[in-house]
Amino acid sequence: MLTAVKNQLRVCLLSLKYNIMREMVNKVTFLTNVCFMVLNNAALLVQWFILFRLREDVGGYTLREIMLLWGLTAASFGLSHILFARVFSLSELIIKGKLDAYLVQPKNVLVSVITSSTDISAIGDLLYGVALACACSPGIGGFFLFLLFTVTGTIVFTAFALLIGSLSFWFLRMDMLENQAVMGMISFATYPDGIFQGISRFLLYYIIPVGMAVWHPVHMINSFHAGTLFTVLGYALLLLTAAVCVFYRGLRKYSSGNLMTARM
């Protein structure tokens, strides 16, 4: 069991290394990609400077909390797109029958698939997120919490994309929904939860799990609460388990490239 995990990890790391090597072929492009993503994210802070000119708080958040929120979202988004970039185009792989190569390998299909590509600009997101968190001077404890929640946030984002993407085994046209759902989630995750009330608030905490990925964590970095921590950890684990189950359930219905040819 332990050697199996070790071997799997060896393949994943090699895959990551080769992916980055591919992008490093042209160093200038690689660096502009990363740097511009940082600038790109930083540009959006202007929005908050404007909003904080109008009121001292936005949805109950101070500028510092907004920066934590952004830092956490960018870091989680970045990490998930560095390690598991393929999960965000899983629908396309399923619909076009591109899982074959992973199914004939003696490794975990899901892990092999989602680690098979890397989004280079996401390195910029991750760097930006961590830098922003440092700028908030959260203290040693706060910083460790930030790192922990970056990991749970990555799990929630990845599992959510996996869940939606896996529905492609049953329904066509999920590729566009997958994209929209993930982008929508990121959009919500860059605004304070205080502006949402009632049903939308409930939905955003439990169904589209923005609350679990970033809002709870931001509150906890400010004032720690053990109960909430367990809720977040439990939720991340539960969502991941559900998503993995749906993926494997759907894999039985996988049709390879055969549907494509039949459709023509």
Binding site: D100, L103, V104, L251, R252, Y254, S256, G257, N258
Partner: peptide, 13 residues
């Protein structure tokens, strides 16, 4: 043909 091969190799169920 391909469908059969894919079932033999574990790609298709």
């Amino acid at each position: 043909k391909s469908t059969t091969i894919k079932m033999l190799t574990g790609i298709l169920y």
